[in-house]
Design a protein around this nucleic acid. Structure first.
Lengths: 223, 223, 223, 223
DNA sequence: TATGAATGAGTTTTCATTCAT
DNA sequence: TATGAATGAAAACTCATTCAT
């Protein structure tokens, strides 16, 4: 039943595009660690989404990117939705780390981070995140991931702002959570706009945008 | 008799799902109803994109939504990309009208418009716009549409703000174009977040967000 | 998205196995009649099921058998279940005709029909019927077809028996419907056994079986 | 932590679904529990076939049902065909026991047995048997098993009938082997029909069918 | 202008099978 | 003896596109 020859192009592992040390396309029980490989696949998912866009992401392409067969991909993820949800979760995990490491930063630094989101190594992550958000509405499974994680994101931001208000570096006439909402929305807006017209976000413009935000949230000058 | 043929579901025109009021004969030079039907199809495209998401939009579904055959769709649009680009263009045309009609509004009203973007009749338009933006990066043909039109959008906003600055209702210590950029980014952020977690945008919250923006861009209080 | 070359073996129409006059693998709107082609496909389904068994029936094989592409098959049937259900319905339609044409036969002739079910031209039909029955339990869609049609089958049989009872050619001490049930069950049993061990059903044996049934249902001899 | 690996569902042993009472250490020469485990697997095969139907039976599902890994299944059976053939053989072994234990029964009891084949504990066995028969024609390996074992089955039945004829409880004008053939065919027919329309086999109907068979094979009444 | 049959390449998913460990 | 990662082939289904009518 399963023995006629027809080599699926994606089932003969293509050229290694990712940096796995040595994938060894051999049969039998391999040495590698499950969790490790899974993470590798998740990275591949992310970069395919970032490069091709969500609509053109297929498990085949992911397999090719990871340098393995489609079979291997479906071995790690029951189906596409699960794969993509796992990728979303993984993405947020990365941002959580970024955020925790940066919780002692001031607001300016945080916003700068956002505006610079295309710094090559993280660029894929942000690009993918946007693509995933666009589809959150239609894949309930990861709409949930978003709600949970995004809330944490906003809270972190909001607590930094509260601290700023206590310090007197942030204006006190607008509730911190509301400010956080506004700034987060702005950040999302940039995430959406930058991939489309990156040339609009020159360094000078980014400086100006950052300065403007800081001006807006600064306490009104005592005249 | 007992067993009707099942041709392609999209090839047997389904019930008219869209609410076109019937291609009415117009006064004067009879404009070929080519344009009219095309517009009808564009509406269908939009509502399919809004409902299913860009990734799950197919010409078949569009045909079904419009109540015609796939053949008809490919007759009006050479291919999918053209169809989708045309839809993007059409969307922006609608927003242009909205914007021109509203150019005498004050900033508060404009922002409110954005925050309420889910008002049922326009909801589809916004939803679709967001979906299209997510793919602008991967369909160069309509990335262009976006750059052009979005620029006009921001300019319109910016001119309203400039007027506000002259009136003294908007703070003058931040350039109007920069303010426009910030507020537009915020708007985009809401457009992205609302479909995912609509419950977060209660009327009260929307009021608070609007008030906050107005507070931020108001001139610092004279003491 | 849809343009890399990888000729699916079943998508390049294979050798014509069925006797279609000329399938013309050309694009564009073909001449043929929808219903006709559908019936042709149904025949192909039947012969694949008969030849390969239900478990090894695939839409690919059906396409090959019919001399068309898999796409064409899915064009006529939304999915496998629908295809197979349609085939079941079609099969029963054929038997209905057989039965109506034979309603003036006596019981002996009807049973003989059953025992000879492997007469090459109808053999496929019976073989396929058995394969389908085996799966009726797991495909609710055509379990229904079976219940409906099979009931008619038994009724037809039962009315012939009733007539026999009135004529005095069939014993009257067992209700006709019960007798019909018994004989139908027997027929099913033969349908099941014959494909497995055809050599057991020699002409002599069939004669003996038929004679035995007739003896059993004959009125007890007046002694 | 939050995100456990999802290896092949059948490769992480699920909960024991079958009711094996625990491989108990036996008295005397310890028979390697290879045979025992194999038998357990065969039970699993049977219940999967019964539940899902032959076409939807996979080695994965068998592994899950048995609560072990796919590897284990392929360790015990070289391939699917062997597995399925072994299951067939095992099934017949069970029926042989049933038959030997019942060889002193009268015909009525035997037929009753058949009509009641859905008695929950044996139901699976009958269901599976039917599924396997449907495929006997296409898996020559177990078509053989069938011919051999089925012949024994019929012989056993036939000898009971012969005894009946000697006793005068069974009519003598039809050869016992022919009678056996007829009744076996009927039994097969019921096996086929019952799963599809169980509601047709009420207790009353079963009584009537049984009574009818007994009437038919009873010696013609002396007047 | 519009239809709808058919193509053919793609996608997701399932699975028997292999094999290092 | 048993595991479980991975392969590779197939299956079902989807879809943009073509084109005679």
């Amino acid at each position: 039943m399963h023995n006629a020859p027809r080599p699926d192009p994606a089932d003969t592992p293509g050229p290694l595009l990712d940096g796995q040390p040595e994938p060894r396309a051999r049969r039998g029980r391999p040495v590698g660690n499950h969790e490790e490989k899974r993470t590798g696949l998740l990275k591949a998912v992310m970069s395919v989404i970032a490069r091709e866009g969500y609509a053109d992401t297929s498990m085949r392409k992911v397999a090719q990117q990871a340098g393995c067969t489609t079979g291997a991909v479906t071995y790690y993820f029951a189906n596409k939705e699960e794969m993509v949800t796992a990728a979303a979760r993984h993405l947020f995990d990365e941002f959580d780390i970024l955020l925790h490491g940066g919780s002692d930063l001031d607001i300016g630094a945080l916003i700068k981070e956002w505006l610079n989101l295309a710094k090559t190594d993280e660029a894929d992550a942000w690009l993918a995140l946007f693509q995933l958000m666009a589809h959150a509405r239609h894949e309930p499974a990861f709409a949930k991931v978003f709600e949970e994680r995004y809330a944490r994101f906003r809270e972190a931001f909001s607590s930094v702002l509260t601290r700023g208000q206590r310090d007197g570096t942030v204006r006190g006439d607008v509730e911190a959570t509301v400010l956080a909402d506004l700034i987060c929305a702005m950040g999302d807006g940039w995430m959406m706009a930058k991939p489309i017209e990156p040339e609009r976000f020159t360094d000078a413009r980014k400086e100006a945008l950052l300065a403007a935000v800081l001006t807006l949230i600064a306490p009104p000058p005592a005249r």
